[in-house]
Design a protein around this nucleic acid. Structure first.
Length: 260
DNA sequence: ATGGCGATATACTATCGA
């Protein structure tokens, strides 16, 4: 099963890129973030010919997440547990069948949190605490479980071309990285880091100041795997060339192949 | 120190992202 995650920065603006990506890479599952549209504005008709099933949690203007799956999904959850008053569309989860078994996939758009300190940063840290609690509960089920998405976390200095630019940023501050490590320490595996220790692997390049041309990137899109999913990991790919397309998203897809 | 770019709604400007 090929699982991809991609922050598209407006699914309507990136519709043609999405169709090209689906055609070129033929992923079985795609987790999308930053749809920037409501449910009824998701380009379902435009995706009709591709044969993907669609689960959406949209929102006006900002945020918004979706899962596309070749096989029909079950047990779709639209909210991250832990705060019924949270209206931001940042979480969607589904059970996806594979050839040999099922995988539960959570698609997340973790809050950016800038500036720090601020209410936004507090919201980010609280959201990470909720993700920790939810993950702990899911791991007790001892199933293949994948958290895929835009984590807005730079885990280590080697995950940034210029780490000194990020020292006061919500993506790289010590409390952010501590909570990310705490999540991993529940027993999850960072899929990319299971395949390589190399630096210079990025998933985001800012639109500004020629970041792409200078390769001034950061690695903030991740896939975290439960032990039962990690056992089935075959390969991980950053689909870097999409950043060079005309009018690209500032993020590129991350893709993992699981033997499921 | 700032803005630089791109998207959306509040729309000839403000907010958000990272």
């Amino acid at each position: 099963m090929r699982i991809a995650t991609w922050n598209v920065n407006s699914v309507k603006q990136r519709q043609e890129h999405l169709l090209r990506f689906l055609k070129e890479e033929a992923p079985d599952v795609v987790c999308l973030q930053e749809l920037k549209c409501q449910d009824d504005a998701f380009p379902r008709l435009e995706l009709d010919g591709t044969g993907y099933n669609i689960a959406v949690r949209g929102q006006k203007s900002f945020n918004g997440v979706a899962i596309l799956s070749k096989r029909p999904m079950e047990d779709i959850q639209l909210r991250l547990p832990g705060d019924d008053s949270d209206e931001q569309a940042r979480f969607i989860e589904a059970l996806v069948p594979g050839d040999k078994g099922v995988v539960r996939i959570a698609c997340i758009y973790l809050p950016n949190g800038n500036p720090a300190p601020s209410e936004k940063y507090s919201y980010k840290l609280a959201w990470m605490d909720r993700l920790h609690a939810h993950t702990r509960a899911r791991l007790r089920e001892e199933e293949p479980f994948v958290i895929a998405g835009d984590f807005n976390v730079i885990p280590e200095p080697k995950d940034a071309a210029r780490p000194e630019q990020w020292v006061n940023d919500a993506l790289f501050l010590p409390p952010t990285r501590e909570k990310f490590r705490s999540l991993l320490h529940l027993g999850l595996c960072d899929a990319l880091r299971a395949t390589t220790d190399a630096d210079g692997i990025y998933t985001f390049w800012d639109y500004q100041a020629g970041a792409w041309q200078k390769n001034n990137g950061i690695r903030i899109d991740h896939m975290l795997l439960s032990p039962q999913a990690a056992d089935r990991l075959r390969s991980v790919t950053v689909v870097r060339h999409t950043r060079g397309w005309d009018k690209p998203s500032d993020h590129v897809p991350l893709m993992a192949e699981l033997d499921v």
